Simulated scan of single mutants.
Amino acid sequence: MAPKRKAKPEAKASPAKKAKPAKAAKATKTTKAKPAPKAEKEQAPSSDDSELTLVVEHCKQCQCFKRRTAELEQILREQVPDLDWTVNPEKPRRGCFEVRDANSGKKYITLLDMPRPFSKLKELDMDDVAEKILTAQ
């Protein structure tokens, strides 16, 4: 004969919950104004169109991207002291190194979806890239 199990005590009744004003919160969300996309702000023409404005997008996976960007900036700043330089205005793509003009959107160099060890980037001569950017202006 199997021993009898004791019956579990019943759970206590929980106190009454207060009603939440959920509809009032929804009304405030719809009345907020949406911010303008970042791409429109980035492509706004500057007051002086002759000034060089560059956007560099580089991956944050490896330090070689950061070194190459710093090297390119140093070379260009020697040639053009009033250079406007922006690095990663938005979240960068993986394995990407891209240099483009902020005003016109012209891409000077684009290396996308590079697998490790990023040999295309490491073989790149930054003096040639700087020369290409300066002659295109």
Rank of each mutant, 00 (worst) to 15 (best):
D84T: 14
N88Q: 12
D113H: 10
D49M: 02
M114L: 13
S50N: 09
H58D: 00
A19D: 11
E40M: 10
I133E: 08
L134P: 01
C59M: 07
A102H: 05
D125L: 03
A130P: 09
E57Y: 14
A2G: 11
K4N: 04
V55N: 03
A13P: 07
V80D: 09
D82W: 00
K66M: 12
K41F: 06
P15R: 10
P9R: 04
V129C: 09
K23W: 13
K38H: 02
R116W: 04
A102K: 14
K132W: 00
E51I: 11
T53L: 00
R93F: 07
P15A: 15
K23N: 12
P89W: 09
E90W: 00
Q43T: 11
D127I: 03
K18T: 01
K41Q: 13
Q137K: 14
W85P: 06
I109R: 08
D84S: 12
R77M: 12
L72D: 10
S46D: 08
L83M: 05
K8E: 08
S50W: 01
K107N: 05
A16Q: 12
V87R: 12
A130W: 08
K26C: 00
K8H: 04
A36T: 11
S47P: 01
F97K: 02
A130G: 11
I109K: 08
D49E: 11
A22H: 11
E51L: 08
M1H: 06
L121W: 07
K106I: 03
A39D: 10
V55H: 00
K8M: 03
A25Q: 15
G105W: 01
D128H: 02
P81N: 08
G105F: 02
D49K: 11
C62Q: 09
F97L: 06
E78P: 03
S104E: 04
Q61G: 15
K106A: 13
R67P: 00
A102W: 06
Q137F: 03
P45V: 07
P89L: 07
K12G: 09
P3I: 11
